[in-house]
Design a protein around this nucleic acid. Structure first.
Lengths: 118, 118
DNA sequence: CTTTCATCTCAACACATCTTGAGACATTAA
DNA sequence: TTAATGTCTCAAGATGTGTTGAGATGAAAG
């Protein structure tokens, strides 16, 4: 991810409705959700929702596919991890004061670590 | 870091000038840089620079202290790591597809890992 | 083909953001 | 005090963003 993509992604995520959409789609899994279901969960009108979904798609953070009458949106996991990696690489140059606590916080969350302790 | 702080931080970073200022200040170290030196590095007028620095300070991403005639700005490392941790926790709930590659990308960068292999 | 359903597109408006230039404020030196 | 330096504040204008409502499009059912 280059700087321009990162700026787009950051801008897309810096809006309450869009951040919540991404959160919803990440937890929804790779199959994603139909636009209607997202709108219901967000309490958004169809045109408002369409505006934000288009914005997120242009920023590369979600992807869409038609399925019958509805359109399913799903999180672009690679773009999200790319953004986080960009922030860490960009911030961490010689300064682990940023990355070390961030990774430590991740270890304390429910996610499996890169090397699961199985 | 809660959602509102994260939105502020994401919005602050989603602007080219401000993202570059943060990058500059992170690499400048804890002592930071005087506003004038930042402006020179960015090629920005004093009022434009002041606008962006104030924006970043309100978002909690930088801090300032007066030093003689000049004002030194420095990166708020804790806020930056807090933002990254927020993104990972928020994105990673049950979905290591985001966090695992991000942490792996970090390991490939010049930064010391949380458990240095010394 | 017509209807229905799901979603998108468009124009309009309000509001926020970024940039600029002029000037104010605070700090130091003469 | 006066002058010089470094930075901030303010108002104005251009541009960008988010919301709404009305209507268009596309897909499936009758």
């Amino acid at each position: 991810m280059d700087e321009m993509q990162a700026l787009d992604a950051l801008g897309a995520l810096s809006q309450e409705t869009r951040l919540r959409i991404v959160r919803l789609l990440v937890t929804a899994g790779p199959d994603g959700m139909a636009a209607g279901a997202i709108g219901e969960a967000m309490g958004a009108t169809s045109s408002r929702l369409s505006f934000h979904l288009t914005h997120l798609e242009h920023a590369g953070l979600v992807q869409s596919r038609r399925e019958g009458r509805s359109i399913r949106y799903s999180a672009a996991y690679d773009a999200l991890s790319g953004l986080i990696a960009f922030l860490m690489r960009d911030c961490c140059q010689g300064h682990p004061a940023v990355c070390t606590p961030a990774v430590a916080a991740l270890a304390a969350c429910a996610c499996p670590s890169p090397e699961p302790p199985k």
